[in-house]
Amino acid sequence: MSAANFVQLLLSGLAMGAIYALTATGLFIAHLATTRLNFGQGDFLMFAAYLSMALLLAGVPVALVMAVVIVVLALMGWGLERFAIRPLDRMRALVGGQYSWILTTMGVALIVQNVVTLVWGKSSQYSPPLFSANRQNVVQVFGAGVFVEELLVIVVALVAILLFYALLFRTRQGRAIYAVAFSPETAALLGVNVRRTVVLVFVLASVLAALSGVLVGPIVTVHPFMGLVFTVKAFAVASLGGFANPLGILIGAILFGVVESFSNYINSAFGDLYPLLLVLALLVIKPSGLFGEAKTDVR
């Protein structure tokens, strides 16, 4: 393989890895604070991609598109917590009641899929590029051609995740999330508004889905059932981070994307299998996830 082709595959893998990182971080933050997660995270991403596509096609400027999609998805995150998760708290004591949220979040995902099908149809669609005049805007990086949108995905996803980590570890609100994760009762005694914090994490998770959706739309084909693949892969990546270590999730996502790209090159018939096997192997060796001991779960 030539060096240019190596870079080509690496960048393709990095772009998809960045999307997995954003999606998995959404799963991680919700799980951290509430031990629940949104099984429709990928479908929220899909909805964001459709909304962004519709607005871009209507001629709305990119910045405004981004803002609208983030606001709409934030509202969806709030709605998810309010109507699909919080009412189930009362059932926690019942047998199996503590897992009802799996069904309700999946139910919301199905509703989202059906709404998208009703509004935009069942066919695949192509979302216009965010910053390019046409779909052929390629730049050369070390001899490899890369779409501007792919580079953008890598840069924006990394910046978004770094900002997200800054929020989590450097702000009062971030510490409140960790306090709620440690013990909601103790956090409440310390003056943390637990309910507001729980709502916040679902809103944050949805905002990450919004970002992923806007970014991923122009580099893949958009269709109403694309979400599940992203949920499954993000789930695998979040498992790599042990659902507890954000650094593990970031590195795991990039590793997953890059391995996926190279394994499709080496043996395309089972290209999608190898990254999942890698996750399995790593979890067998280190069940706590990558860097599990270096940064212990606060819970």
């Binding site: 694309m226 090159y265 290209g271």
Partner: peptide, 17 residues
């Protein structure tokens, strides 16, 4: 001869081959 799962979102590696 290259193949890909039906739900993949990118065929860059296959086309590179």
């Amino acid at each position: 001869v290259e193949s890909a799962a039906p739900n993949v979102s990118d065929l860059t590696p296959q086309l590179l081959k």
